[in-house]
Design a protein around this nucleic acid. Structure first.
Lengths: 347, 347
DNA sequence: TTGGCAATCTGTAACGTTTCAGTATATTGA
DNA sequence: TCAATATACTGAAACGTTACAGATTGCCAA
């Protein structure tokens, strides 16, 4: 008649998810001991430790994330912060996979934190830090003087940037060597007797804009070629804009005979523009382009490509953040990926 | 001399993140009252409610996720489960952005849960459910008899599938009408006097494989065209495989004069294969392809395209899961996106 | 006056974890 | 022998939240 709610603690039904209390009951130990045994604390007897760990494995114990997080503040979350409007498509996909590859056998989860063109890029980062939503952050579209990096450094939250900064501050990053890329591209074109070159730049304001432009300029003077200015577009522009402006450029008398492009999508537009102007790729003009998936050679065999591996970038960035969280020196968590050689189409 | 650790509760420094206790102290109310006032509970006086909410807004109070999660089990997390090897690149990017668009003004976070070819696709879902890591799940690559959907239905966790199932079970989904797509493609090709048609299918085993194949077959008999079997590839195959097999196909005497392709990347390979065989797109053969970004017309103007909007899919899926979590009927959260018309290139 | 009731508000416990401050027992050194 | 110390373990408190079971007040009907 007294059907009151079942008291807790006598829950041996095994249906609920096991907690430390479950383990404590099963092993006859205290909750504290179990907790310490699981994390190999030194003050626990060797046999007890083994016993607890065995039982834990047997019943498939997994620490409750909310419990840990509430108590310790550790979220076991890495956040990837992305611009939902300007990020390269394959970048998003590959970098996510690269990150997940690395965190797969860790307790970390990956959350994607978006922001859009209209917002301050600092907003999402501020949100993450203020709400303590992540143990580590990965950002892209890095600027030489990046307020996000500065902010996170101030607040002491581990992060890694895709691309470098130039503020005299040390933090983990992964970057592709765009200086080398632009240089290689120019030298390759020079080797084909192209000596009036134009550059489709990265977005103005991002650090690798500078790297690319410098690599381009330095190599130009090295090989004695000249630049045909093409400052009206960057790879952030729409396909249509790039196409139109390329067509304009290619109709001029002083048109370039070689173009270096910093992204595959832009290259599609550039080629369209070239053809709009009635010119032929490979004959009238050569184009060297970065790409992150193997599609440009399907597009036009005459294209010359350099591969950039975003999946690798994702892995490196994840490793860097985890390393920092794990106490490594930020300065030791920086990596630069060298471009491979310029590849013409091979049957 | 007695510098013991600062007792809690007298923390008016305002430097720490505010909690309910902070609010309680500031308003002079009890923690319980504050909690209820913030969620508009009816037993709180109108003025008190307003007062609490005002103060909360002023000091930027945000509920601690770990606290809520521990107490209620609510994670405020949606998980997107992805195959890290076979998912279409633009799919990943766009669907993520679609989802984040919808959850942007909710307390939800998006976590990406990956699995790879070698694993059972059920693994990640089981993990999510068993560890209670998400309030809702979105899966793709849906099968007619999908163990993941069945499992989640059994366990009572809200989810939505990209693509339909066919198990007689009701659950939210969003799907593109691939039956209609294949039909439209066939009819369009028939209108151009193409009547020996081949189909580059979706991955065998996924639900939309069946839809596509049926739409193709039904339209074929409707217009009196015939099928050139091309069962050796699907869009899951590599670029190289598709290219090679297309070339083989196109070298045969009974080659098709029209091809319908279910994905843009496959289409690039198909076109390469066609050209490998010495044929010309638009003259010897027409190709109708689905695409999710506007690049096929840059690739070859002769291509005929139908657009599929993955960003929309992401939004719809997110809306569906949130709807289910919010108590709506799963049956009312299903949507089907009709394909637009077949588009030839327009200068 | 009393009891009942509605309207507001409050303290306590609990979610699962880790940390702090122990306790109990065995071991060591002198 | 006794105290000091090392070893192995433990209960209670706390993280921030919500649910439960009251408590207090004022008002009204009987």
């Amino acid at each position: 008649m007294d059907r009151r709610v079942k008291k807790k603690d006598d829950d041996t039904s095994g249906k609920e998810r096991p907690t430390l209390k479950t383990l404590a009951f099963m092993t006859g130990l205290g909750v504290t001991t179990v907790s310490r045994a699981l994390k190999d604390a030194p003050e626990i007897g060797a046999e007890t430790r083994r016993r607890v760990q065995l039982v834990a494995k047997q019943i498939g114990y997994r620490p409750n994330r909310a419990g840990v997080r509430l108590r310790t503040g550790k979220t076991n979350v890495i956040s990837l912060v992305l611009d939902t409007e300007r990020e390269i498509m394959s970048f998003v996909s590959d970098i996510i996979y690269g990150v997940t590859e690395v965190i797969a056998d860790t307790p970390y989860h990956l959350i994607v934190t978006p922001y859009s063109r209209s917002q301050d890029p600092l907003d999402p980062v501020r949100y993450l830090v203020e709400t303590g939503s992540a143990d580590g952050v990965i950002i892209s579209r890095t600027q030489p003087n990046d307020p996000r990096a500065r902010y996170m450094l101030e607040r002491g939250i581990p992060f890694a940037t895709h691309g470098r900064t130039d503020m005299g501050l040390v933090h983990p990053y992964h970057d592709f060597d765009n200086y080398a890329f632009a240089g290689e591209a120019v030298r390759y074109l020079a080797g084909r007797d192209r000596n009036r070159l134009a550059l489709v730049t990265p977005p103005v304001g991002l650090t690798y804009y500078g790297h690319t432009v410098n690599g381009f300029a330095d190599a130009l003077s090295e090989v004695g070629a000249s630049e045909v200015p093409f400052n009206t577009v960057s790879i952030d522009h729409t396909i249509e804009q790039i196409r139109m402006r390329t067509a304009q450029l290619m109709r001029r008398d002083d048109r370039p005979d070689g173009i270096v492009s910093s992204a595959a999508a832009a290259t599609l537009a550039v080629v369209a523009g070239i053809e709009d102007a009635g010119l032929t790729l490979g004959r009238d003009v050569d184009v060297v382009s970065k790409q992150s998936s193997e599609l440009l050679h399907l597009f036009r065999r005459e294209l010359l490509v350099v591969n950039e591996n975003f999946r690798l970038a994702g892995s490196e960035l994840a490793r860097a953040v985890l390393g920092w969280i794990g106490g490594k020196e930020p300065g030791s968590l920086q990596s630069l990926s060298k471009p491979g050689e310029v590849l013409p189409y091979r049957g």
